[in-house]
Amino acid sequence: MTQTLGFDATTSSKFFFEEEHHMLRAQVRRFVEEEIKPNAEAWEEQGATPRALLRKMGELGFFGITYPEQFGGSGMDERATVVLAEELGRSTYAGVAITALVHTDMASVHIFNAGNEAQKAKYLPRVISGEIITAVGVTEPDAGSDVKGIRTTARREGDYYFLNGAKTFITNGVLGDVYCIAAKTDPKGHPSQSVTMFIVEKDTPGFTVSRTLKKHGWNSSDTAELSFVDVRVPAENVLGQEGRGFYEIMKNFQNERLVLGAMAMGEAQAAIEMTVQYVKDRKAFGAPLWDKQVIRNRLAELSTKVEAGRQMLYSTAARTAQGETLVREVSMLKAYCGELVNEVMYACVQYHGGMGFMRESAIERMSRDARVQAIGGGATEVMLEEVAKRM
């Protein structure tokens, strides 16, 4: 098994993972090789990952690895989530990866964490099977990492809330069937006590996808703006308690940033492996580029940094699986991995030379995809502030 994983996964992870995690890694790796890599270039052109692939992922159990067996899941812990995210990141198609991971670990997780039993029974089995795809709507034109700054409102009238506002940069915005939407139920209240999360289904009158956005990278995922004009949502669709939405969002940030760190390390590992092979094959001045000490030493240095990031990732996942709340460590991880994957991509494009600048090159696509890793899910600057607060 070790020989097929590129890096020595058994040695690298033996203190953090169990046999079921290694089996999952092999299964996801095989799926990536057989189902994603041969087809994903077409999805880049189409601007979305097809529902047929997502349904197949659901059938294989990838969407329910951490959800309880009563809903059709596998009941594994956060370490399994890291394995899934890391292997999807290694696919070299980050748009496909983020489409799946938003569904599993950034959107539907709100239903599991904050939903009541009726909401879980209604949605989670279909989430896990891939019958429905989920998205989460927090970010707005004037509120990204600053969750307290959202302006979308929810006004209660009897047994319904009426939502008005807009969301932007929403992954799965077009593809989604069910959305977890943050809105202010008390616009004049304290910012941390006035946000409520709602389940909003796609066909609800007044709810529209107002615009599909064109991006620098992640082209095989759809990203959209959402509009809410007097969208009538039943009170039974409130997630958790009214006014507690800010805390529910904060609660999941730990998991979300862990997932993004894992995805980034998968991307970085794949880029290094690809570039090592390229410089061993590419000849210049009568010898392979690998013979140039400055190149192989730089790749060795980057490989060392990625291994350090991977160890931080695995350690944080293992501690999270034990129930620890690790805001400081997860913030460190997100900042480090988001910046490191961009450092790796810059060097790998450089060592591919002119080919690294061509759209036909995988490393060119990967370098574009990686840029948002230092922005989305908590910008590096915000993450470092979280660390600084705890120093």
Score class of each variant (00 low, 15 high):
residue 341 V to T: 00
residue 3 Q to R: 00
residue 198 F to P: 01
residue 18 E to W: 10
residue 79 R to A: 08
residue 249 I to M: 07
residue 220 S to L: 09
residue 73 G to V: 14
residue 314 Y to M: 09
residue 188 K to C: 12
residue 369 D to C: 07
residue 117 E to F: 04
residue 100 A to P: 08
residue 255 N to R: 05
residue 331 S to P: 07
residue 32 V to E: 03
residue 263 M to Y: 07
residue 319 R to D: 03
residue 216 H to Q: 03
residue 336 Y to R: 02
residue 128 I to V: 03
residue 93 Y to I: 11
residue 183 A to T: 14
residue 266 G to H: 09
residue 115 G to D: 00
residue 236 E to Y: 12
residue 340 L to Y: 02
residue 346 Y to W: 05
residue 12 S to F: 12
residue 331 S to T: 03
residue 40 A to M: 01
residue 116 N to T: 13
residue 247 Y to I: 15
residue 53 L to G: 01
residue 167 K to T: 12
residue 175 L to M: 12
residue 324 E to K: 02
residue 373 Q to T: 04
residue 288 P to H: 07
residue 10 T to C: 00
residue 388 A to G: 12
residue 112 F to T: 03
residue 50 P to R: 05
residue 162 F to Y: 15
residue 62 F to K: 04
residue 227 S to W: 03
residue 360 E to Y: 07
residue 27 Q to P: 09
residue 175 L to S: 15
residue 344 V to S: 05
residue 39 N to K: 13
residue 177 D to H: 01
residue 48 A to M: 15
residue 67 Y to V: 00
residue 101 L to T: 15
residue 192 S to K: 04
residue 223 T to L: 09
residue 322 Q to S: 15
residue 320 T to K: 05
residue 210 S to A: 12
residue 307 E to M: 06
residue 318 A to M: 10
residue 389 K to D: 14
residue 365 R to H: 05
residue 300 A to E: 10
residue 15 F to G: 05
residue 234 P to C: 10
residue 159 D to V: 07
residue 33 E to N: 12
